[in-house]
Simulated assay, not measured.
Amino acid sequence: MKHLFLSGSLVKLLVVLLFSATMVSCKKDSTTTPVMPGTITAQVSAGSNFTLLKSAVVKAGLATTLDGTGPFTVFAPTDDAFTASGVTSSVIGSLPADQLKAILLYHTLGAKVMAADVPAGPNAKVVTAGGDSVFVTKNSGGVFVNGVNVVTADIAASNGVIHAISKVLFPPAGNIVEVASADTTFSFLVAAVVKASSGSTNVAAILSGGSILTVFAPTNNAFRAAGFATIDAVKAANANTLTSILTYHVIPGRIFSSDLTNGAQPATANGGKVTIGLSGSSATVKGNTNTSASNIIAANIMAKNGVIHVIDQVLLP
């Protein structure tokens, strides 16, 4: 019987060829087609932290729209964002579909805007799908829309992009005076504006005019703590004294909470200055003769001519 002997070099060559063929075969077997993301509607429906948003989208009749070709950008409130904004499942159920639609379109842009495309600097104006405007900012703290932070950016969708946000955005319901008048929390403030406007300065006209303003708005309890026990006490106060106090709560320009910096002293409409304090997620504002700083207890309430921040003390010049 004849025996076939292979040289050492030939054996090595065969081993290399067999190994190479195996690797090529494995690569072919492991190659898969990339899974494309779903539409914005599909991504929201699949997201475990977007259950309230999904309910709102369905009730508002926007599921088909956000399933369309787009492109869209959606600032998507998480379930925690809805809860933090007081919009529970029962609230969504009680709101008319048209009102929900207006709110959701205020979160939607008719273009794809990635986080990297947000302009650096404060408050670039962007028109929403509902025709209103939101203001986007990118700074060292992240990306913000109307002062509300983006908690997860650039969630891919086949027809645009989703940015998860920490609060629900509400379209402006009117100018600063109209927004304050619609909220019973500000009954004393509105009475003070009316009384002040009977003096030498029409404060109501300033707050409802065309100038863009930021207002630190004291609550009713803040007025009571400042010595105005009742609305009648506000109405009995000197008009010009009230004007001096009220215009001390007004800063020219639109300043969201994301624009505030610790130790800043912005000039107010009456020529004085207030002092901003930041500590973690808390913000304060202190008047010149206040013994302690006022807490900003609610921020970034939109008005057509500016923004309102709610405070728990009256600021004293």
Rank of each mutant, 00 (worst) to 15 (best):
S30Q: 08
S133I: 05
D79G: 11
L242A: 02
A81F: 05
L242M: 12
V57S: 06
T65A: 15
P96C: 10
V57A: 10
K101S: 08
N139F: 04
N288L: 08
T230L: 11
S166V: 06
A153S: 14
T219Y: 08
A222F: 01
S208I: 10
S89H: 10
S197W: 05
D154R: 05
G174W: 03
L100H: 01
N146S: 09
H309R: 00
N290E: 09
P77G: 12
N290P: 03
V57T: 10
G199A: 11
N123S: 08
H107K: 04
T83N: 13
T268I: 09
T51V: 10
S94N: 11
F186W: 00
V190F: 09
S281Y: 02
V15M: 14
T51I: 09
D79F: 08
N290S: 03
S294G: 02
I311H: 00
V194T: 12
L260Q: 00
P37C: 13
V151A: 06
G121Y: 05
T65M: 14
L316D: 05
G253N: 12
L109Q: 02
I297N: 03
S133V: 11
I155H: 02
G287M: 02
V11K: 15
A21I: 13
F5M: 13
V11G: 03
N288K: 07
I297C: 05
V11E: 15
V150A: 12
V250T: 01
L53V: 15
G8N: 12
T230A: 14
D80Q: 13
G271I: 14
G277H: 00
G142A: 08
M114A: 10
A237H: 06
N123E: 08
Q99D: 14
L278Q: 01
D259R: 00
G209S: 06
Q313E: 14
T65Q: 15
L213K: 00
V35R: 07
P172S: 06
L242Q: 02
L278E: 01
I231K: 01
A217C: 08
G263S: 07
S89M: 11
N240Y: 12
A124S: 11
V126H: 02
T185W: 02
V314T: 01
F135I: 03
T39M: 10
D117F: 10
K138F: 03
L246T: 02
P317E: 13
I176L: 12
M23I: 14
V150H: 03
I92R: 08
I301L: 15
T69H: 05
I162T: 12
G38P: 11
N202I: 03
A204V: 04
G174K: 01
G38E: 12
V203E: 01
A239R: 05
A267M: 11
G121P: 02
A267V: 13
Y248P: 03
V24Y: 03
K2N: 09
P122Q: 07
P252G: 08
T243P: 02
F82E: 10
V194I: 15
A192T: 01
G142V: 07
S7D: 14
G277A: 02
